[in-house]
């Protein structure tokens, strides 16, 4: 089983994720971040908790591509988008129906439906990072590279 990112590691990775990773070291002329349908504004994050109703490895018709987590909350069933990489490869999300979970993300209306673009999923003491703070889904390789960088900070798990 691929070990989830837990405890101190999750803290380190959260820090690593929030450290900008500029590709090139020059004074940057940056653009203003646009507000399109898939744009991710971390200041608008919410956290919802509930019982996992189902884990969809493939989207149902009308859903955006990728895997989805249906979370039964007090307000009803929430569709949380896990994108394409969350359920496979290094650091994959291990979760199943009936478990208690909380999901942090930004709520969007896409294809006429509300969907939570999940950034963090917490299951018991395990913390899984699905997207970075810019809303970009982390590939298994990106998760592995983050783990390697966190290891390089000299802190043992």
């Amino acid at each position: 089983m691929i070990r989830p990112i837990t405890g101190l590691w999750s803290l380190l990775l959260s820090v690593a994720i929030f450290i900008p990773t500029p590709a090139f070291s020059q004074a940057a002329v940056r653009l203003v971040k646009p507000a399109g349908p898939l744009s991710y504004d971390a200041s608008k994050e919410i956290t919802l908790s509930g019982t996992v109703s189902s884990v969809l490895t493939k989207p149902s018709p009308g859903m955006i591509m990728g895997a989805h987590l249906l979370l039964q909350t007090e307000s009803g069933v929430i569709d949380a988008s896990l994108d394409r990489f969350a359920l496979r490869g290094y650091g994959a999300l291990a979760i199943s129906g009936g478990e208690q979970a909380s999901v942090t993300g930004v709520m969007k209306t896409l294809n006429g439906k509300q969907v939570l673009l999940a950034r963090i999923v917490r299951v018991a003491s395990d913390v899984y990072t699905i997207r970075n703070q810019h809303g970009i889904a982390l590939t298994p390789l990106a998760r592995e590279r983050l783990r390697e960088k966190a290891s390089g900070q000299g802190v043992e798990p």
Binding site: T21, P22, A23, A28, R30, L31, K33, N132, H134, I136
Partner: peptide, 12 residues
């Protein structure tokens, strides 16, 4: 760059 979150212009 997806790790930066916005376009960066005019690098030499």
């Amino acid at each position: 760059d997806g790790g930066v979150g916005e376009g960066v212009l005019a690098q030499s």
